[in-house]
Write a protein that binds this DNA or RNA. Structure first.
Lengths: 327, 327
DNA sequence: ATGAAAGCGCTAACAA
DNA sequence: TTGTTAGCGCTTTCAT
């Protein structure tokens, strides 16, 4: 292995000069800098990141702990962090907790000593534990807020409002809402938003039983919709997986979208833009959530005051699955 | 920050004894070990991974470079590496190359000095460049082989053969094959496997134009299938996205699966198991590919001989979308 | 079984 | 602008 010392000797300068030439070029005479650079490249030298980290106290790494990578919600967040981090020359140290609180804590302590900050995505630990982690190093949460800590959340309730406004604007008054995941806090937020929006416009929101975010739940929901006495003219679904199932289920039952019924989803995580007809949905910029989180960890730790919070807005993308109701 | 020295002092031993007590417990008297452990936990001490890495020369990190996380093929591989690594107490340092050869090289050198080994997933650089990277540290490729380097590949051609055998066994003789991605090496391998399998059984393989791995390509393919003069009785599709599109397209056209036509896919990356009917497909154990890759990087660098290669078999999962043809 | 001492490769005062 | 000198926090001979 080629060390900085070797390069320095080859260039006929001291180690510190070589160090400066490589890490703080402006502090060194152009001619010297050039000589060091040449020696370094000739010898195939690379600064040892570990040694650097030890002296500077900064590793250039950010830890990202996610519950899983199997849910398409999470990879884009990681990608977002990585993108923002790349511009700063850093890298992502990844942890997958598998939704285990213990594993999450383990990962946090393991990664803790090798990163400059930690991004906890949808952490499963209790507030107190998460705050405990944050005592050792800068921590930012994503898709969840923890009192006292900086956080990034995606504004899906706001998105639901936009979606409802769109449907109401088209003339729909009887709108079904298929929420989920069953029992989740987010589900309640979204349902509340939907109910308010529809009530304000004098419409009626039919709240269906919440469903798991799966294709077959959509198939079942479609059957239910078809069988209902009082037809709704539009359906809003919280998951694009479920929407896909509904789309197929309605097709099997001979109902046409959007002629017979309008359909919209509150995320675009699946192939939803390419369905036939293309599905109206909220675009959820998860990569932005990731890069926002990075910016927050990088910032100086909040000096006791209110921790910064970032709310990522969603964007309504209208496609062919929504239209005015038939009269 | 609490250092090992602080713990040692609190426990009334030397730094080296404290170090041993924590890292090589058997080298220390049980009573001493206990005292150090107690002091450490009382003071909330954690060994500093960076300092450790500097002295031992091993970081406990493995770099994983993927083209993207947006394609569902890649996250499971990362998860597989992480799982295997977890048992060894290590972590994953992630890089996303965005399919840029230059970025991939940058990442490789950046990560190179902070990891014990590098796993390159579907690298885009030329063989020579990849080998160059491997001169500095252990490198394993996944989903591609590079002469001279250890590698892990998924045996999809073998899977295609299994799938074809299944269809032929059901009695199908006119089978359509919808391949892709257009022009890819893998596509040729799979097509070859399909053709051979069908030919051996005296059947006829109708090769459709290769399609991109997208939902709407499936819709288009469904239309084409419906319009064909000579109906095929079964279709094999290389991508589960495309299969989803076909399923919906056939449904729209009033064709029933599997009564009118059997359908099978050569991967199970999407919600394919939950469709209605459930779709016969190959299970592709990408997490196993990831953990196999980890085992290969961890092994001693191959001493000049043939580099180890691991071929991950796929598994045929028969569901309701395939049945005997109507006669 | 324990301690003293010498680094790992680099950066950062402090001088010159 | 450059060099000298201490470390960063830990592990590891080498003694004892």
């Amino acid at each position: 292995m080629v060390r900085l010392t070797d390069v320095a000797r080859a260039a006929g300068v001291s180690t510190s000069t070589a160090s400066r030439a490589l890490s703080r070029p402006t502090m060194v005479a152009p001619e010297t800098r050039e000589r060091v650079a040449r020696a370094a490249s000739e010898m195939g030298f690379r600064l040892n990141a570990t040694a650097r980290a030890l002296t500077t106290g900064r590793t250039g790494l950010v830890g990202v702990i996610v519950p899983t990578l199997a849910n398409p919600f999470f990879p884009p967040i990681v990608t977002g962090v990585q993108q923002a981090l790349t511009e700063a020359g850093g890298n992502v140290l990844l942890g997958v907790s598998d939704r285990s609180a213990e594993r999450e804590r383990e990962l946090a302590t393991q990664l803790g000593s090798r990163v400059d900050g930690l991004i906890l995505v949808a952490p499963v630990n209790a507030d107190a534990e998460v705050r405990g982690i944050a005592e050792r190093l800068p921590v930012v949460t994503v898709d969840r807020t923890v009192p006292g800590l900086p956080g990034v959340v995606v504004d899906t309730p706001g998105g639901v409002r936009k979606l409802m406004a769109h449907l109401l604007g088209l003339g729909h008054r009887r709108i079904a809402y298929l929420g989920g995941p069953p029992g989740s806090w987010m589900d309640r937020q979204r349902r509340k938003a939907a109910r308010e929006a529809v009530a304000e416009a004098g419409g009626e929101l039919i709240v269906l039983d919440p469903a798991p975010p799966q294709f077959d739940a959509g198939l079942a929901a479609a059957e239910h919709l078809v069988r209902r006495e009082e037809r709704v003219t539009a359906v809003m679904v919280y998951s694009s997986y479920v929407l896909l199932g509904i789309l197929m289920g309605l097709g099997n039952a001979g109902l046409r979208v959007p002629e017979d019924i309008s359909l919209a989803a509150s995320d675009d995580l699946t192939v939803i833009g390419m369905t036939q007809p293309g599905s109206t949905a909220l675009h959820v910029p998860l990569d932005e959530a990731g890069s926002a989180a990075f910016r927050l960890v990088r910032e100086a730790p909040p000096a006791g005051g209110r921790p910064p919070r970032v709310r990522i807005p969603t964007r309504l993308v209208v496609r062919e699955s929504t239209a005015a109701p038939r009269r």
